[in-house]
Amino acid sequence: MENTTTPAVTPVSVGIRYGLLTGIVTVIYSLILKAADLEQMPVMGLLTFAILIAGIVLAHKFYKKASGGFMSYGQGLGIATVTGAVIGVLSGIFNYIYVNFIDTEYAQRTVAAARAKMEADGKLSEEQIDQAMEWTSKMMPTGPLSIFWAILATAFFAFLLALVISAFTKNKRPEFE
């Protein structure tokens, strides 16, 4: 006789599923921003966080639905962290390919835009701006290590967001059920 039961949904499986879905949306959004040269606008960066938050909330909702309506706070944190790590993998690989193979002058344009903004603000001397640009150029990740940093950063921000989101989306299973 064939076993037809479906495997239980785990926080990791949900995190991977929604990390892939949200990561694809994030990569497409990032590509649109880069193509339209809108990436330097702060409002557009906030929309990236909104996409991340939506992905976490939808992952929590899916997990709760598959788990009889229950999800602990820790499970919510785990789901969000895995989701963020998967998004970081996809975003990191996309950015690495984009910066190193598609638009090789992207880093220089970003540094030039930052310089122009600092000069327009008029708060720093030319020497201070030069020093800031030197540090910015050194710190701008363009090599394979940038993928690792993208994974860490996105997982960390997803975890921080989940500290709040999970407090609202959790629904603990009663102890004596």
Results as ranks from 00 to 15, higher is better:
1 M>K: 06
3 N>I: 04
5 T>R: 08
6 T>V: 10
7 P>A: 13
9 V>D: 00
9 V>R: 06
9 V>C: 01
10 T>P: 07
11 P>I: 07
11 P>H: 03
11 P>E: 02
12 V>E: 00
13 S>W: 01
13 S>Y: 02
16 I>H: 07
18 Y>T: 10
23 G>E: 08
25 V>T: 14
25 V>E: 09
25 V>M: 13
28 I>G: 05
28 I>M: 05
28 I>R: 06
30 S>I: 10
30 S>V: 04
32 I>N: 06
35 A>T: 12
35 A>L: 11
37 D>L: 12
39 E>V: 10
39 E>G: 13
39 E>L: 10
39 E>W: 09
43 V>Q: 09
43 V>E: 08
45 G>F: 05
49 F>Q: 08
50 A>F: 09
51 I>C: 11
53 I>D: 02
54 A>E: 00
55 G>M: 10
60 H>F: 07
60 H>Q: 15
61 K>H: 11
61 K>S: 14
61 K>R: 15
62 F>S: 15
62 F>C: 08
64 K>C: 13
66 A>E: 13
68 G>C: 06
69 G>L: 00
73 Y>H: 05
74 G>H: 00
75 Q>S: 11
77 L>P: 03
78 G>K: 02
78 G>H: 03
78 G>Y: 01
80 A>N: 03
80 A>H: 07
81 T>P: 04
87 I>W: 03
88 G>H: 12
93 I>D: 07
93 I>Q: 09
96 Y>A: 14
99 V>Y: 06
99 V>E: 03
102 I>Y: 09
102 I>P: 04
103 D>Q: 11
104 T>E: 11
105 E>M: 11
106 Y>W: 14
107 A>S: 10
108 Q>E: 15
108 Q>N: 15
110 T>Q: 11
112 A>F: 06
113 A>P: 01
114 A>D: 01
115 R>A: 08
115 R>D: 04
118 M>L: 15
120 A>K: 15
122 G>L: 05
123 K>D: 14
123 K>N: 15
128 Q>G: 02
130 D>I: 01
131 Q>E: 13
133 M>D: 05
133 M>H: 04
135 W>I: 15
136 T>C: 00
140 M>G: 08
141 P>C: 02
141 P>I: 09
142 T>A: 02
146 S>L: 04
150 A>Y: 07
150 A>N: 14
151 I>C: 05
153 A>K: 08
154 T>K: 01
154 T>S: 09
155 A>P: 02
161 L>C: 06
161 L>N: 06
164 V>Y: 09
165 I>P: 13
165 I>Q: 10
166 S>W: 03
167 A>Q: 12
168 F>L: 15
171 N>L: 03
172 K>C: 02
173 R>T: 13
173 R>V: 12
174 P>E: 12
